[in-house]
Simulated assay, not measured.
Amino acid sequence: MNNVQYVNIGHSGLRASAVGLGLMRVAKKSDADAAQLVATAIDHGINFFDNADVYSQGQAEEKFGAALKIAAVPRDQLVIQTKVGIADKRYDFSKDHIVAAVNGSLERMGLDYVDSLLLHRPDPLMEPDEIAEAFLQLQNQGKVRQFGVSNFNPMQVALVQQAVPMHLIANQLQLSIMHTGMIDFGMHTNMADPRSIDHDGGILEYSRLHDMTIQAWSPYQYGFFEGVFIDNPKFPKLNDKLHELAAKYGSNVNALAAAWILRIPANMQVIAGTMNPERLAEVADIDRIKLTRQEWYDIYFAAGNDLP
């Protein structure tokens, strides 16, 4: 049963589920449980899987590779992404590191290629021409099909993009109902209140202008990994509104929180990091949710936000 819609990531031709499974915590699962999680994702139309070489020091990629073997899903039905660039106590975008990191990721996952590779966090020592050399080598070897970034501001994206010949298709950024800085800033332009402070360089508008899909990480968290806001007594108004709309649409609050992000017309993806198959199935149940403009704003207000 396919419950999710699909997006063309960065207009690249990669057809991926709008809800993806983030694998940061999968190393804690048994091989069998990880395979069940992958199978649940596939059963609910989720074909996009996001990993990183730094997650559990490579063990997340190893566990995902083991799960793929057990689940026996044809490779061409999956869109697999990983991230590289975080080294021991530093970031490293050197050609040697990027190439070696990708080779390590492929070996751990038991794959010949990944569909998408992201540079994980901006490296102030990055040399764009060296990144371009690494990307071209990996693409020419058939090891990486598409490229993007994670946690970059617009000028950092532009710096890399001017050197690499391939279009950067995605930027993975923190975004949730309770983490809306890139949205708040746009509405509080030309003001002096706290919400007018631009922490992101206009990344939402930049991404839309340059056909880059925003992949929302921590879509259920408030703060920086402080906890989930779903059914959290700290946020009664927000949860009341989510439950109200979930009942209206015959869905659930996890799907509502994802649908709120996907309602933003920026070719969004939601990276759900749950390791619970039942909850993942709930997140995927978004096909019947068509938030109106007023409902989107009502959720925004219930989270404690305002308009100028």
Rank of each mutant, 00 (worst) to 15 (best):
Q5F: 13
Q5C: 14
I9M: 04
H11M: 15
G13Q: 11
R15C: 12
A16Y: 01
L23K: 00
K29P: 03
S30Y: 03
A34P: 01
A34K: 02
A35T: 00
L37K: 03
L37M: 08
V38W: 00
V38M: 00
T40F: 11
H44C: 12
G45S: 04
F49Y: 01
F49W: 00
A60S: 15
A60Q: 08
E62Q: 15
K63W: 07
G65R: 12
G65Q: 12
A67Q: 12
K69N: 15
K69F: 13
A71F: 08
A72S: 14
A72F: 10
V73W: 04
R75Q: 14
D76C: 09
Q77K: 13
V79D: 00
V79E: 00
I80V: 06
K83Q: 07
K83Y: 05
I86R: 03
I86A: 05
K89F: 15
R90P: 08
Y91M: 15
Y91N: 10
D92R: 04
F93K: 03
S94L: 10
K95G: 07
V99F: 07
V102C: 09
L106P: 02
L106W: 01
E107P: 05
E107V: 11
R108H: 02
G110Q: 05
D112F: 09
D115T: 00
D115I: 00
L117E: 01
L117R: 01
L119P: 02
R121T: 08
D123T: 12
D123M: 11
D123P: 12
E127H: 12
I131P: 01
A132D: 06
E133N: 09
L136H: 12
Q137E: 13
L138M: 09
L138P: 02
N140A: 14
Q146M: 10
Q146R: 09
G148A: 05
G148E: 02
S150D: 05
F152S: 02
P154C: 13
A158C: 08
A158M: 11
Q161H: 06
Q162G: 13
A163Q: 03
V164G: 06
V164D: 05
P165Y: 07
A170M: 07
Q172W: 05
I177W: 08
M178Q: 08
M182R: 14
M187P: 04
M187S: 13
N190I: 08
S196R: 03
S196A: 11
D198G: 03
G202A: 12
I203A: 07
E205W: 13
E205C: 10
E205K: 12
S207I: 08
H210W: 04
H210L: 03
I214Q: 01
W217M: 06
W217I: 01
P219Y: 00
Y222F: 15
Y222H: 14
G223P: 07
F224C: 15
F225I: 11
F225V: 15
F225Y: 15
G227V: 10
V228G: 15
D231G: 10
D231K: 13
P233A: 07
F235C: 03
K237S: 14
L238R: 02
N239E: 08
H243M: 12
H243W: 09
L245T: 07
I261E: 04
L262K: 01
R263V: 05
A266H: 10
M268V: 03
G273L: 01
G273F: 02
E278W: 08
R279D: 04
L280K: 00
L280H: 01
A281G: 07
A281E: 07
R293E: 10
Q294A: 14
Y297I: 11
Y297M: 13
D298T: 06
F301C: 11
F301R: 13
A303P: 05
G304P: 07
D306C: 13
